[in-house]
Computed example of a mutant assay.
Amino acid sequence: MNDLSALILAGSRGGADPVADYAGVAHKALIELEGRTLLARVAEALKDAGAGRIAVSCSDPAVATAAEALGLEVLPAAEGPSLSVRAAAERLGFPLLVTTADHALLRPEWIARFRADLPADVDVAAMMARRAEVEAAAPGTQRTYLKLSDGEWSGCNLFWLQSERALGAVAFWRRLEAERKNPVAMAGLLGPGILLRYLAGRLGMTDAVRRLGELAHVRAAVVPTPYGLAAVDVDKPADLDLVRRLVGEA
């Protein structure tokens, strides 16, 4: 059943994109893998997972043209991903699944498992993978891991917004974006307790998510995934080389 709306984030950070330059395209969403652009691959996975309405948030005209050719809605990218998500939620409604155009290996079964494992009372959720699963699926990959007392975790660029209440998390995300270059202000937003526990290695995922949910006034959850490749996106040239190897194009 196509009961789901989805958003693909395909904005630009400004300036040259080393991945797009490396691949020789205008935007990394237009990189081809197995004869399809990354944008087309992500859109196909979303459709196969039940998304009946899919929008692309972008600022590059070439990406907008490609999205329209795929039958996707085009939304102008806002100033930062959090505002783009908010604008899309207001346009598409809820529930809303959010991912990125560089999620090159995205599979519908990952999305199905994510949805199946969502807690019943959640407002917003993120899918994450443990380091062991990521490295088993993609040996040698260089990811960024959040080191907590119950393991090391990598984000999977897959987010769930259940209802309008989830916009509280988007607003808090926006505040974190605004202060990302100001560690003192960031510490003030998160609170000294959670930071001290993290630095001491005593902060677990459950407590971290609970505290962040409290700060954003939402019921938040992290949904662990057994699919290690879900943590692999194309954020740098080495990532593109990796996904090409994984699909047998290298």
Results as ranks from 00 to 15, higher is better:
141 T>I: 13
171 A>Q: 14
130 R>E: 12
138 A>I: 12
165 R>H: 12
142 Q>G: 06
164 E>L: 11
129 A>Q: 06
145 Y>S: 00
147 K>C: 06
141 T>E: 12
131 R>V: 05
153 W>D: 03
126 A>Y: 10
155 G>D: 11
165 R>F: 13
156 C>Q: 05
135 E>D: 08
134 V>E: 01
131 R>P: 02
172 F>P: 05
126 A>W: 07
151 G>N: 04
161 L>C: 10
157 N>V: 02
137 A>I: 04
146 L>G: 02
153 W>G: 09
153 W>K: 03
136 A>L: 09
151 G>A: 03
128 M>Q: 10
153 W>H: 09
156 C>A: 14
172 F>M: 03
151 G>R: 02
151 G>W: 00
152 E>R: 14
132 A>L: 09
135 E>K: 06
164 E>T: 13
147 K>P: 01
164 E>D: 14
168 G>D: 12
125 A>G: 01
170 V>Q: 10
151 G>H: 02
137 A>W: 10
132 A>G: 06
133 E>I: 00
172 F>R: 02
145 Y>F: 15
143 R>E: 09
160 W>V: 03
143 R>I: 00
166 A>R: 10
149 S>R: 15
134 V>S: 06
127 M>Q: 15
161 L>I: 04
139 P>L: 04
147 K>A: 14
138 A>P: 05
156 C>K: 05
166 A>D: 11
151 G>Y: 01
142 Q>K: 14
154 S>P: 09
145 Y>D: 03
174 R>E: 14
161 L>D: 06
134 V>K: 01
134 V>P: 07
146 L>F: 10
128 M>R: 01
132 A>Y: 04
144 T>W: 08
141 T>F: 11
127 M>T: 09
152 E>S: 15
163 S>A: 15
173 W>A: 12
160 W>M: 07
152 E>I: 00
152 E>W: 12
166 A>W: 11
174 R>N: 13
171 A>C: 06
170 V>E: 11
169 A>Y: 14
134 V>R: 02
155 G>K: 01
161 L>W: 13
147 K>G: 04
152 E>F: 05
136 A>N: 04
144 T>C: 03
157 N>S: 15
153 W>R: 08
163 S>F: 01
154 S>Q: 12
128 M>V: 15
140 G>Y: 05
140 G>L: 08
173 W>K: 09
171 A>Y: 09
156 C>S: 11
142 Q>A: 13
155 G>Q: 09
126 A>V: 14
157 N>D: 15
160 W>S: 00
160 W>R: 03
167 L>N: 09
164 E>C: 07
133 E>Q: 10
127 M>P: 00
146 L>R: 07
144 T>K: 10
146 L>S: 09
155 G>V: 06
127 M>V: 14
145 Y>T: 03
